[in-house]
Structure formats: structure tokens, C-alpha cells
Design a protein around this nucleic acid. Structure first.
Length: 847
DNA sequence: CTCTCCCT
């Protein structure tokens, strides 16, 4: 147990032992390099409270679980699996002698679901808790619940590097906080303002270019290897090009590092440089926690990262580029001070730094919560509020997750877990995929469904170089089965394949044995099975260009040059939701026939009656829908008249009243009725409101009866609007209208002049000569409304307007006569118009 | 021109 150099954690161990002897729950705060992961479990092994029970320590990653267990075993001078063992989903080294068990975080959840008392476990240690992984948060919530209900003596130790310990200590019931020093060398921090004040810079510069320039300056100014953090592969490739264009000192190599890189390429970046050589590692977040790069003295930090964010509305995730947190920046900087004093270049200013979030948002805030919701439901909890959380699961996402579980038949109508849901919870895969495996097994497609789940559990089974990546999932399933020869530039990731095969074994053991299994792969088996897992991502071609519509209503697009783009239907296993259209990353083809057969109970039959604006007619169609996808449509030969009528009315509503065949008499009748309604004071008034507004509002009442058998705009020409309006009046009202608002005014010449009711005051336009002998101003509305007389010349030119004929004759007439006599000398212009003979003749009477 | 990790 002796080490040549004492770990910094040693100093804190007495306090930690004390705290754990007296309290069930304790928080240990220690920076990276303190040696807590290996030091703490070993130090607690002899404690009295342990008895003969195990200490369990959670690690966020399999690699870490194995490495930490190995180091502890070495310290004891034992092989792994004796006193110290580890357990991950895919690999286990544990015996009956094991008293310290290092496990990945998901394993604990599995244990708790099987045995909430966690029998045989004295202490659970949450290592790297500051990373706030979903599984660690869930594990802690379940442990606290178990502690409250069935395991009062269970001890919990939360270890954290950068996390503010106070919040978690409070969550643990005012647990004591023990702190330890780290062992890190000082790192000098340069902010961007100090680097770049010299030159005026353009407004925008490629991040990759700025990183490259900072690196080439740093490598001149400082000794040692460089680790640069960039948000993604694209930026890494660009920075690499920029660096290779500049003249780097001899012996300096540029090495990219990201998750999709082949293992031997990752190793090249991780291993220490040979003597006399230096390296520049361009890395994603993978180098922040998962991998440690040997020999780094200089860190260049872009300050950005890509993060996955789940959208509960669409049920899809998207990658977002954003600023890192201060905690993350410190973690990245710490990578420069592991073996000696180092230097860190931050490509942002000190002012910007203070505005960054202190901590990275915990995973639970932005993740798909379907797995968590299934765990909680299986735990017997429908509302996460029943448990204690640092950050509770966001309610919208949790609700979406419960909806999904309901659609997978995992939750019953009463909100509790179903037998099927229990089966899904027993499986070590996403509930969607577990559902696919269980139902697929029932369909006789067990092997294929297991293979799909295993392939989807890996980032990508295939490595593609120098060409467009083929997104067909069948391609990968066939490769896993060894049934496909791969084209040049495409190879199997052997590590991924081995993990996939282990996964299949594991999942198969979690299943009931099938009655029969079809091991041969049919063309559409993958698509059919995938549809069980992702019914919301079944996609229908929109025609050309690899563009599809998903059953959840969103658009999605295939990358260029995909053989799948010929498929009428796809099921999408993986996609990035993007800003506008989602990009399909993995999919398999399906047919309409299979979709309709497998999802018969989810297909919606609709008889659709709608006004088609483009065709200007009613569309009466028989349709079959799956979510947002229209699978089938046919014109209905004998449509239901009532629904036809509704659609026709909708059409008129859209077209407006102007689309109706208004004749002059019809419009005139409308204005007379409006006039009558306005001026008739007799009660009860028999007049309907036929203003344009009222007609539009009440189309169903007055127009509908006349629209039977009509289905297009043309048909409206058949309407007799005058007759229709007249039919709104009973016989008495029709009679009364004739006297109250007559159509015409008889004048002394014998003519009948039409009365225009559209103006504010009803008007007749009549030649002056026709009203000689008319003593009084004519009226309508039973004498209450005088008509406006527009008096015209023989040539129908307006001469005078008056609402008072008596005073016109008395005063205005003389002037008018004089003028008209000048222009129309042959006409008859009497001195006394009241006794003169009116005439309707256009030509002057012969003298 | 798309991060990373994980599940008896």
C-alpha cells in the first residue's frame, strides 16, 4: 500500500474517515490530481461501519472504471477481480472476494431496480460527480430514496472536483464537506485581449484560423507540447490545414483527436512525443475528460463546444455550437499543468470570461428523458417531484418521455408500468430499441432486431474515408453479419464490432426465448423493425432531392449521393434536427404496404372535404394517414351532400360575396332592403339584415339551401340572387317593400325613373323636362325621406341637384333655364315649369 | 462541413 510519493488526498483522509464514521452522507471536494479515485476507496476499506459489505464506486466511463480498478489492485499488489474488481455493461472482473467494486453509473440503476435495499453494499461513492451525468443524477436520487425508505444505514459519498459542494451537501441532508488539496502545477493564463491588441482585426474570423495562429505563435514562445480545444471535426481539419500552410519549426507534428477517429490514430495523439519532437494535438471535448494527453504544457482553448440538445416538441436532438462554462475552461486549462508549470491561451477576453456560465448545464436538463422516465415509472414513481434532485428533470421533456412510453405500451392508462414496460426496463438499451427487440422477437425477427440495437449502440460500425458516408442502416447490419463485401474506402471498426457482438449476447440473455427466429435478412426487415422503435420518424419521399417528410411533421433530408434516395419510405434511426430541415444520418427503407400492414391500428382513415383554392372547387377525397404522412388518396365518387355543402360554403367564405352572380336588380334589391331596415320604424320590422357583412356572416342560413349539388366556383353562376333575397321576405313584407322603398318614381312625363338607394339619401337622376309640373319633392319611406333629384339636361348632363324641388322652381330654375336655352335653343323651356307640360321626348317638339 | 458518453 506504500507509494513512493504520497498523494495529496492523504492529508484529507483522517477528516473523511471521521465524517463517514459519524454521518451517512458526506461530500468530498478535491481538485483533479488529488488521487481521490484510487486513494479514497482503499482508505475506507478498514472502516468499522463497512463490516463485510462492499464499497461501490461509480465512474462515468467504462475506460475509467477499468483503469481505476486496475490502479487500486496494483496498489494492493493483487490482480484485478480479487479485493478490487470492476463491472461495466460489457466487461466484468469481480469475484466473491471483491470488496471494492468500481462500476459504471448505469450499473447502479440496474442493481437498484432489482434490489432497492442494495443488500451487501455499505457505501456508494459517486466519483466525478461534477460531470453531472444523467445516470449519476438518477443514481443519487434513487439512492437517497432507498436510504429514506428501506436502507437507513446506506452511506453515500459524493466526490467532486469543481462542483460547488454546498448545493449537493444540502441535497444530502446537510452532509459535512471535506476538502482536499490538488496536485497541479501553476498554469499562466493569457486572455485574447492581451494577444491581439496590436493589430486591427476584421470583424469576423474563422475560429480555426485564430486557433492556428495562436498555436504557431505559442510554439515559438514556449517549450512543450500543445493541446488545442476546438468544437468539432470540421474546425479541427481547417486548423490543421492552416497550420500546415505556416512554417512550423522542424520536428513539430500536427495530430487530430476526436471520437470518430480510428483507435490507432487516437493513440498517436495520446502517446508522448519522441525525444526531440513536439506535437500539436487538435482535439474535441474528448480530451477534456475522457482521454489524457501525455506531455502537454501548452493549452489553446477556443472556448467553444458542440452539445446535443433534445427538443421535446419534435422528440429529436440537435447539435448546438456554444460557449463553454468557466468550470469547463478551468478543466481544459488544467490539462497544461499535470506534470509541470504550463501556459493556457484563452481565445476570449477577461470581460467575456466573467459572463460565461459558472457550470456546464447538467445532462438531465438537455437530454432525452425516455430512459429516465422508464426507470422512474418502474421505480413506482410517476412524478419526479417525489424524489430529491439537484436539478429536477424538465417537465416538458419528462411529459414527452411519458407520452413516448405510453405509445410503446410501457405505461398503462393508470400511469403505472405495464408488464411490457417491466420487460423493457430489464433490457440494457433505450426503451425504443428494447420495444423493437421484444416486438421484433414476437414477429420472428429476433436476431435482426438484436443486431439493429447493437449497431445503433455504437457511434458507427463503418469507417468511411474520402467519400460520402452511406447512411443505409442495412449496410451496417449486413456488415455485422459478414454478409457484405465492403467497397474500397469503407472498413469495419473492429472495436465497435466486438462491442456490438457483446451487446447482442447481453441483450439476448435479457429476453425470453423466442419460439422461432428468421435469421435470413429480408430487404425491408430492418425498416420494419426500426419503425417499431421510431414510429415518429417514418419518412415519406417528397419527390426529388432526397427530401422527406417525417411522420412527426418535420422535414428531413438525405445527404448527397445516397442509394436510399430512391426509397418512397424510410425509417430514420439517427438524424440531427438542425435549424430548418433535419439531416438524416442513419435510415432504412420501408414500403407503404408494410407500413399499412404493421401499423394498421395507427392508420387514420379520413374523408376529406375541403375547398381547394387552386382548383376553385371542392375536393372530396378518401385518404389514409399515418401521422403527418398521407399514404393514400382517392376521389370520392358519391360524396355525402351535407359535407359537400360545408366545403362549398367554406369556398364561398374564402372567395367572398363578389364571387356570387350579382345582377343589377339583385344589388338594387339589396340596397332597398338595407334602406328599409334603416328607416322603417314600425315594429316588428320585417326586414332581414342583408348588408355584405351580415350576408358573409350568415352564409349557412341564407345561401346554404341554394348550394346543393354545387361543387365548383362555376356552379355559383346558377344562383338567382334576386330571387334568393326576395325569398327572405314573406308576402306581406314583399308588398310593404314596394310601397316603402319602391323601385321606381313615376314622373309627370309618364316615365318611371329608377331610384338609387346606394347613396346616403336615395336618388333619382331625371331630365328636367320630365318633371315640369311636379309641385312637391317626391319622397319614399312613407313620406319621411325626400328623394335627392339629380336634374339632367336633355343630353343627360347633370344640371342641378336638389332635395327641395319647391325652392328650386322658385329660385334656381330661372338661371338654369337661361343657360339651357342657350345650349338647347330648340327645346321647350317654359317660364312657369309648374304648369308646363312635361315631356319624355328626347327631341324638341316641332313648332 | 456533425460533440461526447453510457446501460445486471
Amino acid at each position: 500500500m506504500n507509494r513512493s510519493v504520497a498523494l495529496p488526498i492523504e492529508a484529507a483522509l483522517p477528516d473523511l474517515r471521521c465524517a463517514l464514521a459519524e454521518h451517512r452522507n458526506v461530500v468530498l471536494q478535491a481538485p483533479p490530481g488529488a488521487g481521490k479515485s484510487t486513494g479514497v476507496p482503499l482508505a475506507l476499506l478498514p472502516e468499522r461501519w463497512r463490516g463485510d459489505a462492499r464499497i461501490v464506486m461509480l465512474e462515468p466511463r467504462r475506460l475509467a472504471a477499468r483503469a481505476v480498478a486496475t490502479r487500486m489492485a496494483q496498489t494492493l499488489g493483487e490482480p484485478v477481480g480479487r479485493t478490487v474488481g470492476f463491472r461495466t455493461r460489457l466487461e466484468t472482473k469481480v469475484t466473491k472476494d471483491t470488496r471494492i467494486e468500481v462500476v459504471t453509473e448505469g450499473i447502479l440503476t440496474r442493481w437498484l431496480q432489482r434490489d432497492p435495499t442494495l443488500e451487501g453494499v455499505a457505501l456508494v461513492i459517486f466519483d466525478e460527480f461534477h460531470e453531472r451525468s444523467l445516470n449519476a443524477d438518477l443514481g443519487l436520487a434513487l439512492c437517497l430514496d432507498a436510504q429514506e425508505t428501506v436502507r437507513e444505514d446506506l452511506r453515500l459519498l459524493v466526490m467532486s472536483a469543481t462542483l460547488d459542494g454546498a448545493a449537493v451537501a444540502k441535497l444530502l441532508g446537510d452532509a459535512p464537506i471535506v476538502t482536499a488539496e490538488g496536485r497541479a502545477f501553476p498554469v499562466t493564463t493569457h486572455y485574447r485581449e492581451r494577444l491581439d491588441v496590436r493589430s486591427a482585426r476584421p470583424q469576423y474570423e474563422d475560429m480555426a484560423q485564430i486557433v492556428a495562429r495562436t498555436i504557431s505563435r505559442a510554439i515559438e514562445d514556449e517549450p512543450g507540447d500543445v493541446l488545442a480545444f476546438l468544437p468539432g471535426q470540421g474546425e479541427i481539419r481547417r486548423a490543421q490545414r492552416f497550420l500546415e500552410e505556416t512554417s512550423l519549426p522542424p520536428g513539430v507534428r500536427v495530430l487530430p483527436l476526436f471520437g470518430e477517429l480510428a483507435p490507432h490514430e487516437q493513440d498517436a495523439a495520446i502517446q508522448p512525443s519522441r525525444s526531440g519532437e513536439r506535437k500539436i494535438v487538435l482535439a474535441t471535448n474528448i480530451a477534456e475528460t475522457s482521454l489524457t494527453i501525455e506531455g502537454v504544457r501548452i493549452v489553446v482553448d477556443s472556448g467553444q463546444e458542440r452539445r446535443s440538445r433534445f427538443d421535446p416538441v419534435t422528440g429529436m436532438s440537435r447539435l448546438e455550437l456554444g460557449n463553454i462554462s468557466r468550470a469547463s475552461a478551468d478543466q481544459r486549462r488544467g490539462r497544461a499543468g499535470r506534470i509541470q508549470a504550463g501556459v493556457c491561451y484563452r481565445l476570449w477576453s477577461e470581460v467575456e470570461h466573467s459572463s460565461l456560465p459558472a457550470q456546464t448545464a447538467p445532462e438531465i436538463v438537455g437530454a432525452d428523458l425516455a430512459p429516465l422516465a422508464l426507470e422512474l415509472t418502474n421505480w413506482g414513481i410517476a412524478d419526479p417531484g417525489a424524489l430529491r434532485w439537484l436539478d429536477p428533470p424538465p417537465s416538458a421533456t419528462f411529459a414527452q418521455a411519458r407520452d413516448l412510453l405510453r405509445s410503446l405500451d410501457a405505461i398503462a392508462a393508470d400511469g403505472r408500468v405495464t408488464e411490457h414496460g417491466r420487460a423493457l426496463a430489464r433490457m440494457s438499451t433505450h426503451p425504443r430499441l428494447a420495444h423493437m427487440i421484444v416486438r421484433g422477437t414476437e414477429m420472428g425477427l429476433r436476431t435482426t432486431s438484436l443486431q439493429i440495437a447493437a449497431v445503433l449502440g455504437e457511434r458507427d460500425l463503418l469507417r468511411t474515408q474520402g467519400q460520402d458516408r452511406n447512411v443505409d442502416l442495412r449496410f451496417r447490419v449486413e456488415a455485422l453479419r459478414g454478409e457484405r463485401s465492403l467497397p474500397a474506402g469503407v472498413s469495419i471498426d473492429q472495436g465497435a464490432k466486438q462491442r456490438a457482438l457483446r451487446s447482442i449476447d447481453l441483450l439476448a440473455r435479457q429476453l425470453e426465448q423466442p419460439r422461432h427466429d428468421n435469421t435470413k435478412l429480408g430487404d425491408f426487415d430492418v425498416g420494419r423493425l426500426l419503425a417499431l422503435a421510431y414510429p415518429d420518424r417514418i419518412a415519406q419521399s417528397r419527390g426529388a432531392g432526397g427530401r422527406y417528410l417525417l411522420s412527426n411533421g418535420r422535414g428531413a433530408q438525405l445527404p448527397p449521393a445516397q442509394s436510399l434516395s430512391q426509397a418512397a419510405f424510410l425509417v430514420v434511426a439517427d438524424l440531427d434536427a438542425g435549424d430548418r430541415e433535419a439531416m438524416i444520418r442513419l435510415a432504412a427503407p420501408l414500403t407503404r404496404e408494410l407500413l399499412e400492414a404493421d401499423f394498421a391500428s395507427h392508420i387514420e382513415h379520413r374523408e376529406r372535404f375541403e375547398w381547394d383554392s387552386r382548383e376553385q372547387s371542392v375536393a372530396a377525397q378518401d385518404e389514409r394517414w399515418f401521422g403527418a404522412l398521407k399514404l393514400y388518396e382517392r376521389r370520392i365518387d358519391k360524396p355525402d351532400p351535407a359535407r359537400m355543402l360545408d366545403a362549398m360554403l367554406a369556398g364561398v367564405r374564402e372567395l367572398g360575396l363578389a364571387a356570387l352572380p350579382w345582377t343589377k336588380p339583385a344589388r338594387a334589391l339589396q340596397t332597398r332592403l338595407i334602406f328599409a331596415k334603416r328607416f322603417d320604424e314600425r315594429a316588428p320590422a320585417p326586414w332581414p339584415d342583408v348588408s355584405d357583412t351580415a350576408l358573409m356572416e350568415h352564409l349557412d342560413d341564407w345561401l346554404a339551401p341554394w348550394l346543393t349539388d354545387m361543387s365548383r366556383r362555376d356552379h355559383l353562376a346558377r344562383l338567382d340572387l334576386h330571387g334568393i333575397l326576395m325569398s327572405l321576405l314573406d308576402w306581406n313584407a314583399q308588398q310593404r317593400l314596394e310601397t316603402f322603398a319602391p323601385t321606381h318614381l313615376p314622373v309627370p312625363s309618364g316615365s318611371r325613373i329608377p331610384i338609387d338607394y346606394t347613396e346616403e339619401s336615395p336618388t333619382v337622376a331625371v331630365r328636367l323636362q320630365e318633371v315640369f309640373g311636379m309641385h312637391e319633392t317626391p319622397t319614399v319611406a312613407e313620406g319621411r325621406v325626400p328623394l335627392t333629384l339629380q336634374l339632367l339636361s336633355p343630353a343627360h348632363r347633370p344640371v342641378q341637384v336638389t332635395r327641395d324641388l319647391v325652392s328650386f322652381w322658385a329660385r334656381g330654375y330661372l338661371d338654369v333655364k337661361k343657360e339651357l336655352k342657350g345650349r338647347y335653343p330648340k327645346h321647350y323651356w317654359p317660364d312657369d315649369p309648374l304648369t308646363a307640360q312635361a315631356t319624355a321626348r328626347a327631341k324638341p317638339r316641332p313648332r
